[in-house]
């Protein structure tokens, strides 16, 4: 038996800090593409955070949510890209 739930919580907290750093780019932006890139990065890090928290709390359903979140994030990224392309 290994007890590293607290360390995993720290990893999750660190990921949240990185997400806040990325959020700064969403706010500062400049162009839409910059914002979309930042949101895409946030999605990836959020999925990683969900998986780590699922392991920390021994809740496998967290990871199911991560799977669905990853799929939906991919679809939404494609949709925003299509919107950008159509607008031009």
């Amino acid at each position: 038996m290994i007890e590293i739930a607290n360390e995993m919580l720290i990893v999750g907290a660190a990921l949240v800090v990185f997400i806040i750093v990325c959020l700064a780019r969403v706010v500062l932006g400049k162009t839409i593409a910059d914002r979309v890139v930042a949101v895409d990065t946030i999605n990836t890090q959020l999925v990683a955070a969900l998986v780590v928290l699922g392991a920390a709390f021994s809740q496998i359903s967290f990871i199911d949510i991560a799977v669905i979140y990853a799929m939906l994030a991919f679809v939404s990224t494609l949709y925003i890209a299509k919107y950008l392309e159509d607008k031009a």
Binding site: T31, L78, A81, K82, L84, A88
Partner: peptide
């Protein structure tokens, strides 16, 4: 794939 979609959309817009 998502990165590629964003790059292409950004270039075309």
């Amino acid at each position: 794939t998502g990165a590629h979609a964003i790059a292409r959309a950004a270039y075309r817009s």
